[in-house]
Design a protein around this nucleic acid. Structure first.
Length: 645
RNA sequence: GCCGGCGUAGCUCAGCUGGUUAGAGCGACGGUCUCAUAAGCCGUAGGUCGUAGGUUCAAGUCCUACCACCGGCACCA
C-alpha cells in the first residue's frame, strides 16, 4: 500500500536548525516504520524559495535570488544527508516542474470559478508576505511586528469565502482530519468566524511564479508553497502516480491554518481530493525557552551529529518529545540521555551478551528456543511498539523497548552466566540464557532501526546478521528468528560512554563554529552581531515637526473591561481639561503605577475610539518585538505641557 | 474578556471511565555481582497530587471559584 506524506518545505531565509530537523526527522522515522510494516512510503519536503524577503536578502549579498536560494537549498539537502534523512522528493519552488503545477492549479481554480480579479489596497508585511487585512499601513505587522507597508494593486483573489460551509462539513465528517484535537477545535472556531477571500497574486515583485498570460502578476508565496506537496505527487499528472491524496501532512502548529483551511479550499476549488490527515506538532524549545534568532539561542543539528552521532540526536528527539506537544531540547539532557539509554542501555546489553557468547560459546549463537517468558514479553513489546509508532506515540513505544532491555539485564544478573559456565550441568540453562539475551538484542535492533538506522546497522552486523537492517519486515521481529550457530563478529562499542562535562563543552563550541559557518554562507557579517534595523522610510525635519509630542502627567488610570491590554487614563498636558487616553500598556503597568507618572503624549493625533472609549492621543513607549512596552520618561523633572522636539 | 489546555517527588513526566500504603525514567545516596562501555542488579528519595470550597461511603481522578503558566480568538501595540 502506498503511503504518501509530507513535511513542510522550508523558507529559504535562513539555514536549517534543530526545529526543521525535528519535523523532518519524524517524517524519516515514519517512513522507515511504514516500510517495515510493509507499505511503500514516500514523502516530500523541499525549500520555499520565492518572495520579497528572499529577493531582498539576495540583493544585500549582491547575488541573484536564484544564486542565493541555490546555496540554501544545498544547505538543507546537505543537512538531511548528514542526519540520515532520506526524503523521496525534495521540491524546490523555483523548479520548472513546480512552476507547472502551480500554474495548472491556478487554471483549475479559475476554470471552476473560484478566482476573480480585484483591487486590493492595504497593509502588507514584507517579512511575512502577508496582507494584513485587519491593520493599516504604518502599523506593526500582527505576526512579526515589523512596520506594514502600504500597497495598492490589482490582484487575483481566491474565493475562500465560498468554502466556509464545505470546510466545516469536512471537519465534521472527518474528525481525524486535523490533529491533535485542540488544534482541530481552534481551526473550527476560526472558520466559524467567517472566511474572507484571499489575495493570491502579487505584482511589483519579479521573484515568483508568473501567473500565465497575466504579467506582471506572480503568485503569492503561500499559494505557491502549499502546492509543492502536489508537485511531489506528480503535479498535474497526479492521477497516474497514484500518490495523491496524501495520507498525512506533518506541520508545525504555527502553520496549521494554511494547511487546514487554505490548502483544502484550494484543493476543493481545483477539484482534487483532500489529504487524509493534517498533524500539527509543537515547537522544540531550548532550555524551556522559545528559540529565536534575536535571542541567539537557535540550536544547529550538525555539530551534535558530528560529536555524538546523528542517531543520538534522532533518539533524543523521538524519546524526549511527546509528539504534538512542545518539546524541550538541552545539551545536558541530550548527553545524559545518551549515556543512560545508549551507552548503559542497549549498548551495554549488546556488549555483555555478545562478549559472553564469544567467551563461553566460541562466538556462535547457542541452540535454544530461549526463555518462554521472554518470548512472550518480546512478542508483546513488538506489538505494542508497532502500534505506538503507528499512532506517532514514539516516546511510549521507545519506553517499552527499554523496559524489555531492563528486564533482560535483570535476567542476566539472576542467571549469572559466569557461574553457570563453571557447572557442566547447567549447559542448557546457559545456552537458553545467552540465546534469550541475544534474541532480545536482535528484536530491539529491529524495533529501533527506524529511529537509529546507522548505529543499529552496526549492532546488527556484530550479531552476525547478514541482511541490511532497513530490509527488515515485521515477520523478522518474531521470536526465535535468530539462527542457532550464527557466527558473531567481534564486539565493538557502538555507543561509547561520554563524559558529560567535556561533551557539553564540545557541543557548545561546535555550535558556535557552526553558527559562524552559516553566517558566512548566508553573507551575514560575522563581526557585526547586531542585525540592521528595519527602519521606517526617511522623513524630513518638516515631517517630524508635524508630530506634536507633549509632556503630560497621569491623573487617573483604570483597566478597560473586556480588554486585557488596555488602560484608560486621564492625562493632564496643561490644557483646560485632561485628555482621555487609551493605551495598550496594561500588561506592563498597573493603574496605580501610572498615577502621577510623567509620560510623553502624541498630542495632535486624530482621536480614535477604542473599546467604546475615546482616545485623544497616544502614549509613547518602546518595545522589542512582541515584548512588553516601556514608557518613555525623563531623568530630570520637566513641566507638564512641554513640547518635545 | 471569550474558548481550550495545563499545574503530581530535585528534573522530565505516567496516572483510562473516582476505590487498597500516589507511580516511572533521569539525577543523588547506600549496598552488591563481575559477563559488560567505572556499565548491570538491589535498596533509599517520605511529594499538603496549584489554592479554597463542594459532591461522595470513597477524589490526584467529578463539580464550583480563584491563582500561575501555555495556546487560539477578540482587543491592542
Amino acid at each position: 500500500m502506498k503511503y504518501y506524506f509530507t513535511v513542510p518545505i522550508y523558507y529559504t531565509n535562513g539555514a536549517p536548525h534543530i526545529g526543521h530537523t525535528y519535523t523532518t526527522l519524524v517524517a524519516d522515522v515514519i517512513k522507515r516504520y511504514q516500510k517495515m510494516i510493509g507499505n511503500q512510503p514516500e514523502y516530500t519536503t523541499g525549500t520555499d524559495e520565492h518572495g520579497v524577503n528572499v529577493e531582498r536578502a539576495a540583493g544585500k549579498m549582491g547575488k541573484s535570488p536564484k544564486e542565493f536560494v541555490d546555496t540554501i537549498a544545498d544547505e538543507f539537502r546537505m543537512h538531511w544527508d548528514k542526519l540520515g534523512i532520506q526524503a523521496d522528493h525534495f521540491i524546490r519552488t523555483s523548479s520548472p516542474e513546480h512552476q507547472k503545477t502551480v500554474q495548472w492549479m491556478f487554471e483549475q481554480c479559475r476554470n471552476n470559478g473560484y478566482v476573480y480579479k480585484g483591487h486590493y489596497t492595504g497593509a502588507y508585511c514584507v517579512s511575512d508576505n502577508l496582507f494584513a487585512t485587519e491593520a493599516k499601513p504604518g502599523e506593526p505587522c500582527p505576526i512579526c511586528t515589523r512596520t506594514l507597508e502600504a500597497v495598492t494593486e490589482e490582484n487575483f483573489f481566491f474565493k475562500l469565502s465560498a468554502f466556509t460551509d464545505k470546510l466545516l462539513e469536512h471537519y465534521e465528517k472527518h474528525p481525524e482530519f486535523i490533529q491533535p484535537e485542540s488544534r482541530r477545535n481552534e481551526v473550527i472556531s476560526f472558520v466559524k468566524g467567517g472566511l474572507t477571500d484571499l489575495s493570491i497574486t502579487r505584482t511589483g515583485i519579479s521573484w515568483g511564479i508568473p501567473v500565465p498570460n497575466e504579467a506582471p502578476h506572480v503568485f503569492y508565496v503561500w499559494f505557491d508553497a502549499l502546492i509543492a506537496y502536489l508537485t511531489g505527487a506528480g503535479g498535474a499528472d497526479w492521477q497516474s502516480k497514484g500518490l495523491w491524496p496524501a495520507d498525512l501532512h506533518l506541520v508545525g502548529k504555527e502553520i496549521i491554518r494554511f494547511h487546514a483551511v487554505y490548502w483544502p479550499a484550494f484543493l476543493m476549488a481545483a477539484g482534487l481530493p483532500l489529504p487524509k490527515q493534517i498533524w500539527a506538532h509543537g515547537w522544540l524549545l531550548f532550555d524551556n525557552d522559545k528559540m529565536s534568532k534575536t535571542k541567539g539561542n537557535v540550536v544547529r543539528p550538525l555539530p551534535i551529529a558530528e560529536i555524538m552521532g546523528f542517531d543520538a540526536l534522532r533518539l533524543y528527539l523521538m524519546r524526549e518529545v511527546v509528539f504534538g506537544a512542545d518539546g524541550n531540547f538541552g545539551y545536558e539532557a541530550l548527553v545524559t540521555r545518551y549515556n543512560a539509554d545508549l551507552a548503559n542501555g542497549i549498548g551495554n546489553l549488546a556488549s555483555r551478551t555478545l562478549s559472553m557468547i564469544h567467551q563461553y560459546r566460541g562466538g556462535k549463537v547457542p541452540k535454544s528456543d530461549g526463555d518462554q517468558h521472554f518470548a512472550q514479553l518480546s512478542t508483546e513489546t513488538v506489538e505494542y511498539v508497532l502500534e505506538a509508532f503507528g499512532k506517532f506515540e514514539f516516546n511510549k513505544g521507545l519506553d517499552r523497548i527499554w523496559a524489555l532491555i531492563t528486564a533482560t539485564d535483570k535476567l542476566i544478573v539472576e542467571r549469572a552466566p559466569w557461574k553457570l559456565v563453571k557447572d557442566p550441568e547447567s549447559a542448557e540453562l546457559l545456552d537458553r540464557t545467552l540465546y534469550t539475551a541475544a534474541e532480545v538484542v536482535r528484536v530491539c535492533c529491529g524495533l529501533l532501526s527506524p529511529v537509529m538506522p546507522d548505529s543499529i546497522q552496526k549492532l546488527w552486523h556484530q550479531l552476525g546478521c547478514p541482511s541490511e537492517v532497513d530490509q527488515l519486515r515485521v515477520a523478522d521481529l518474531h521470536w526465535g528468528k535468530l539462527p542457532a550457530g550464527q557466527e558473531l563478529r567481534p564486539v565493538q562499542p557502538v555507543f561509547p560512554r561520554l563524559d558529560v562535562k567535556l561533551t557539553m563543552e564540545k557541543l557548545i563550541e561546535g555550535e558556535l563554529a557552526e553558527r559562524k559557518r552559516q553566517d558566512i554562507l548566508l553573507g551575514r557579517e560575522v563581526k557585526e552581531e547586531k542585525p540592521a534595523l528595519d527602519l521606517a522610510p526617511e522623513i524630513t525635519i518638516d515631517d517630524f515637526s508635524k508630530i506634536d509630542l507633549r509632556v503630560g502627567v497621569v491623573l487617573e488610570a483604570a483597566p478597560v473591561k473586556g480588554a486585557d491590554k488596555l488602560l484608560h487614563m486621564k492625562v493632564d498636558i496643561g490644557e483646560a481639561e485632561p485628555r482621555s487616553i487609551v493605551a495598550g500598556i496594561a500588561l506592563a503597568y498597573k493603574p496605580e503605577q501610572m498615577i502621577g507618572r510623567k509620560v510623553v503624549i502624541v498630542a495632535n493625533l486624530a482621536p480614535r475610539k477604542l473599546r467604546g472609549l475615546t482616545s485623544q492621543g497616544m502614549i509613547v513607549a518602546a518595545s522589542i518585538g512582541e515584548g512588553l512596552p516601556v514608557l518613555a520618561g525623563f531623568n530630570e523633572d520637566i513641566g507638564v505641557g512641554a513640547r518635545l522636539k
